[in-house]
Nucleic acid binder design. Structure first.
Lengths: 140, 140
DNA sequence: CGCTATCGCTACGGAATTGGTAGCGCAAGA
DNA sequence: TCTTGCGCTACCAATTCCGTAGCGATAGCG
């Protein structure tokens, strides 16, 4: 390990590369979505919330705070949350992704494929596939 | 609500737009990172795991399965996991992001900003900021 | 053959994050 | 004053993630 039993996700540690930070930042739930929903202009808190399948205000606020901290967006008293220059740049950088998405969806692969979502027991093995290990439960 | 008390994340529902699906898919933890780590060529399970700050094999396998379902990568018996044509295309679409990340990191904003990570009580308000509501504890 | 080394992958159990719901304090309008 | 809407928060249940240990199979070695 690098500095303990638990790696600090991204921040500098072994990878000073900024791309890692961005990958981690955008990898948080709703982050990309929020950015995307703000593409047509500023949106007040609740409107933004509605567009994001009614995310919890808790999470939304957390993401919003993180994004403000990253200077991706700001809160304008009269218009709501709006992307900053940086934020818009990032959104632009995401355009190719949009293009790719269309072609991907058009192919067989993109149908509904793996999008099924990680609903029930997505994390651990959890799959109903009694094949590999068995774990006879031993005492530590 | 649209079709119940809980919206089904992405899939079709109100937004048939493929971009939504992609945004949701890539928004899952480690998804972007895995894609990125595979940029230099195929990587076997454990090597890939090491590059991703030693993610849990559980999660890694889940993500890998999702990506295979989405035809983004395949498992070659001799080389390990490798991006498919689609996967490489997606990676290419992510290039602008890389470019943006560099400039972003160079600015003050990208310093360490909001990257602080969502470690302790990141979700809910949780912040030690007793200002807004108070919640006097009522009976439901 | 027996031993060691890897590989892909899985089963827990506990920790961390996310989702839901109710509501506060504030400001503008009726 | 009453009402409405806004940003934002607390609390708690539900998911998801992490950490660790190990299975079944395969390959090299003596």
């Amino acid at each position: 390990m690098v500095e303990g039993s638990r790696t600090p996700r991204v921040r500098g540690s072994r990878s000073v590369r900024p791309i890692m930070a961005v990958l981690d930042l955008l990898g948080r739930r709703w982050m990309l979505r929020i950015l995307w929903e703000l593409r047509d202009g500023p949106l007040p808190f609740r409107a933004l919330r509605d567009r994001c399948d009614a995310v919890s205000p808790s999470v939304l606020n957390t993401r919003l705070r993180e994004m403000r901290g990253a200077a991706l967006l700001e809160l304008h008293a009269d218009a709501g949350y709006a992307l900053t220059r940086e934020g818009e740049a990032l959104l632009s950088a995401l355009q190719p992704l949009h293009a790719w998405a269309r072609r991907w969806a058009a192919s067989d692969a993109g149908r509904v494929a793996a999008l099924s979502a990680p609903r029930p027991g997505a994390a651990a093995g959890a799959a109903s596939r009694p094949r590999g290990a068995r774990r006879p439960r031993r005492s530590p």
